[in-house]
């Protein structure tokens, strides 16, 4: 099934993926050998967002994940965890070899991330709509404790169907949390179909502005555009920011792009993994 034309029309015409983006995607595909399942489309749309955050934006210390002065990054759309795992492994929070254990018995890397198990994971997520409230609490704690660290909360577009997200948004604006940055992976596809069909979010930027957020939008696969967007935060001196990243579900794997069937896949065998690698190479 291919998403509706409206959703396709909103998709970014991104520059070609560079070698780092392809390598990170390849690591995600390799990890699927472990669990033979995963939220592939949801992870692929996130790769550049997480890459730019961890490569260029976040002040974190892989050798000391609990360092109190760090920036916090909560992957609120926990089902996209493969994108987070490959970045955390790449940065040295845990050995890259762990990725091969994804979803296996005894692994630290489950189908949704657990803070208790995985170094660098700030909060256990998977139930949607929790991260922004936790981020509000962290941002207030930073203010109370006189810390400079920022709090980034990465959410999915389907996730923001949850009412709790908008409770948190109102609260963030009330407290003028300029140290809180919401990031939306806006791939326009949720589990059951296009966001336009299941629960229309538009006008999304207007909604966030109405809730008191300063807003910017960018191509969520263009690393230059992402860097520029994140360099600009906070977008307002006295309130929270949101960066709406226009992305493609399944980005990089042609036969999975825009297809809700790839939101989550199970029974992934070696042939399918080979097909995914081949698709990545074809660009």
């Amino acid at each position: 099934m291919v998403a509706d034309p409206i959703a396709l029309a909103r998709s970014p015409a991104s520059p070609p993926l560079d070698q780092r983006s392809l390598t990170l995607r390849g690591m995600v595909v390799d990890a699927l050998e472990g669990g033979e399942r995963g939220h592939i489309g949801s992870a692929m749309s996130l790769i550049e967002i997480m890459r730019v955050l961890y490569d260029d934006v976040l002040d974190v210390r892989p050798e000391d994940p609990g360092w109190s002065g760090r920036d916090r990054c909560i992957l609120s759309k926990g089902h996209g965890c493969l994108a987070l795992y490959v970045l955390l492994a790449d940065k040295g929070f845990f050995p890259v070899d762990e990725l091969a254990t994804f979803c296996r018995r005894g692994s630290i890397l489950g189908g949704h991330p657990e803070a208790e198990l995985v170094p660098g994971v700030e909060a256990s997520t998977g139930a949607l709509g929790h991260g922004l409230s936790i981020g509000v609490g962290m941002a207030l704690a930073a203010r109370m404790q006189g810390r400079q660290g920022r709090v980034f909360v990465v959410m999915g577009d389907g996730e923001i169907n949850e009412g709790s997200v908008w409770e948190a948004a109102m609260c963030a604006a009330k407290h003028r949390l300029s140290n809180l940055i919401a990031v939306i992976d806006y791939n326009k596809i949720q589990s059951a179909g296009s966001t336009a069909e299941i629960l229309e979010l538009e006008p999304l930027a207007d909604k966030w502005r109405a809730f008191g957020f300063a807003e910017t939008e960018c191509d969520g696969h263009d690393v230059t555009a992402l860097r520029a967007a994140f360099e600009g935060v906070p977008l307002a001196a006295d309130g929270p920011s949101v960066v709406i990243c226009h992305t493609v579900k399944g980005k990089g794997i042609g036969f999975a792009e825009h297809d809700p069937a790839w939101h989550h896949r199970s029974r992934i065998d070696a042939d399918l993994i080979a097909d995914m690698h081949a698709a990545l190479e074809q660009g």
Binding site: A123, H130, I134, V136, G137, M138, A141, E167, A168, C171
Partner: peptide, 25 residues
């Protein structure tokens, strides 16, 4: 700075408390 009266938004205030507690409060 340590007294908060939030809205009728229980899901949010529990999550907010969690975020604070994660950072030692």
């Amino acid at each position: 700075d340590r007294h908060y009266m939030e809205g009728v938004a229980e899901a949010n205030f529990v999550g907010m408390a969690a975020g604070m507690a994660m950072d030692g409060l």
